[in-house]
């Protein structure tokens, strides 16, 4: 149903395609660096010609409709998916090697009800779950876990089975788990999906706080940029096998997105909130029909 239209790179001029990181961190080695990166499944190209340097401490939001390759982008950064061509480095090294310094908040999926893990065990897995053998210093781990639970406000349900927790509660634990490694890079995949406004705010503040406190780089995949718009430095906007990179003001514009989508797109702002909508008279073909609000 989706046309395989391999593109050699993002079309059109503009500063949004410039890969340069903010000047403040120009001399620091980039936390994430992609060069001529292309990702394709078969002859379906998700994105190609991607050159991107994310500076340490930078907050990058990855936007795009379903199926545009946002999760795949994170998988590339995690080293779980090889690029079709080009190179990628995280923390100056191969993604797999950097994995220990990466905090990852996965796209939400609940735990089976009878999973033998309590909230604190889930967080503890972020602390030392990757180490071999059995836990030899439970007290040290417990202290760290208690600290993390406190930080995300999950102390009250520390002993509750994870399978019985709500989506918002599980998501806070996921954030605590990701923070456990004191990550220099945080990768969040739709971390706000299906959360109510309150929990969206809570989770995005936690991620922001990690960046403020420890200078962590953040890559935040989301459908809706509004809950994090105040924190975002740059946006990687994926659509139609192409993309735009730039500050929110550079990318979230009617002309830029219309060009990206190849159809009329309107970017509306109200009360500081941003709404991207397609025009109903659009006859242009896009990736998938549900991308455009009629």
């Amino acid at each position: 149903m989706q046309p395989a239209t391999p593109r050699t790179g993002p079309a059109g001029p503009g500063p949004q395609n410039d890969a340069a990181a903010p000047a403040t961190a120009a001399d620091a080695a980039p936390a994430i660096s992609l060069r001529d990166a292309e990702l394709a499944f078969g002859d379906r190209v998700l994105w190609s010609g991607l050159n991107l340097d994310v500076a340490p401490g930078e907050y990058l939001a990855v936007l795009g409709a379903n199926g545009t390759g946002k999760t795949s982008f994170l998988k590339v950064l995690l080293g779980l998916l090889p690029l079709t061509s080009g190179t990628v480095s995280v923390a100056g090294t191969r993604p797999r090697v950097a994995a220990a310094h990466v905090g990852y908040v996965p796209q939400q999926r609940g735990f089976p009800a009878r999973t033998p893990l309590r909230a604190k065990d889930l967080v503890a897995q972020g602390v030392d779950g990757h180490r071999w053998g059995v836990r030899l210093h439970p007290r040290r781990v417990n202290r760290r876990v208690a600290e993390l639970l406190e930080r995300v406000g999950a102390t009250e349900y520390a002993d509750a089975p994870v399978g019985l927790l709500s989506g918002g509660e599980q998501q806070r634990l996921r954030v605590a788990q990701a923070l456990a490694a004191d990550p220099s890079v945080m990768l969040c995949d739709e971390a706000l999906l299906s959360l109510d406004l309150h929990h969206q705010h809570v989770v995005s503040e936690l991620v922001h706080e990690q960046r403020e406190r420890h200078g962590s780089t953040v890559v935040f995949v989301t459908h809706d940029v509004n809950p994090i718009i105040d924190h975002v430095d740059r946006i990687l906007y994926l659509a139609n096998g192409s993309f735009r990179i730039g500050t929110p003001d550079e990318v979230l514009r009617s002309d830029v997105l219309s060009q990206l989508y190849g159809t009329d797109i309107e970017v509306l702002r109200s009360n500081g909130r941003i709404l991207v909508a397609g025009r109903s008279d659009s006859t242009h073909h896009t990736d998938s029909p549900e991308e455009i609000i009629p």
Binding site: L63, G64, A65, N66, E150, R151, V152, G153, A154, T155, E156, Y157, A160, L164, L165, S166, E169, R172, D196, L197, H198, Q200, H201, V202, E205, L206, E209, T222, H223, D224, V225, N226, I229, L252, Y261, I265, S270, N271, G272, R273, I274, L275, V276, A277, G278, E290, E291, I292, I293
Partner: peptide, 30 residues
């Protein structure tokens, strides 16, 4: 557990203001 959990807010977090369109989306919504 869930009853106590919903009343807690993590350190430094403020309650969401709830203003603006809850459905606002930065990608054309499905």
């Amino acid at each position: 557990v869930t009853a106590t959990a919903t009343t807690t807010t993590p350190r430094g977090a403020v309650a969401a203001d709830g203003t603006g369109a809850a459905t606002a989306s930065s990608t054309p919504a499905p």
